[in-house]
Design a protein around this nucleic acid. Sequence first.
DNA 1: TGAAGTAATAACACTTTTGTTAGTAATGTT
DNA 2: AACATTACTAACAAAAGTGTTATTACTTCA
Lengths: 111, 111
Amino acid sequence: MREKTLEEYLNCPFHLAMNTLEGKWKFAILYVLLDKGTLRYKELERAIPDISTRMLVKELKHLEAKGVVNRKAYATVPPTVEYSLSTIGKSLKPVIDSISDWGKMYAKAVG
Amino acid sequence: MREKTLEEYLNCPFHLAMNTLEGKWKFAILYVLLDKGTLRYKELERAIPDISTRMLVKELKHLEAKGVVNRKAYATVPPTVEYSLSTIGKSLKPVIDSISDWGKMYAKAVG
DNA sequence: TGAAGTAATAACACTTTTGTTAGTAATGTT
DNA sequence: AACATTACTAACAAAAGTGTTATTACTTCA
């Protein structure tokens, strides 16, 4: 069997998925959007205590670029921008549940 | 409903599980050990091209400390140290599969 | 006129993660 | 006597991730 290159390791489906899950804040954003559906930027900020503007904007842009989050802007004053999960974003739910379930199981197992 | 604190966000089951999955190399280590069962340190090193000694040692220690990996040392010369997955480590397989499956699906969906 | 509100952006600093290079101990093999 | 082998360790450097602070534009409300 052929050796896997570093490229293949890092661009494998696992890491592709991890791109939308890893880091300090992505889970919180996905969790809130899964729970609430559609939220304005400010509502997201309030729903995720302690996140900085910088990180919230950065992660939203990242998730939008990946097609996981939808962004809709309205020409109001003050501005209105709504964020929600795309269809593919919503499909992350069972993955997130699988990860969380293991975490619960692990917490019990190790005490 | 009470507000979640930052602590609760970061020590939640999701992030607890992510501790054993995230980063550049943990997946490769888990993947190889799931596939091959038990491997000596040097065999792991050879099975994961481009990983540095530093990172391999560091991640193995981390995973061992989390109870995910077992380490067994023999008093030979040169040293023999065998690594394998613990029972709870093996239980990560369906989680890893779930993440990878989403990655495959995503790759098809976005082209 | 001035303050309040929303959705950002930019510059800089700090922290965490990862990489690089060099080296160690012990013994069997050449 | 020198060398290869294994499983590491330590010091330092670079890169990536995250945090802090200040600032913007526009309009409505006080």
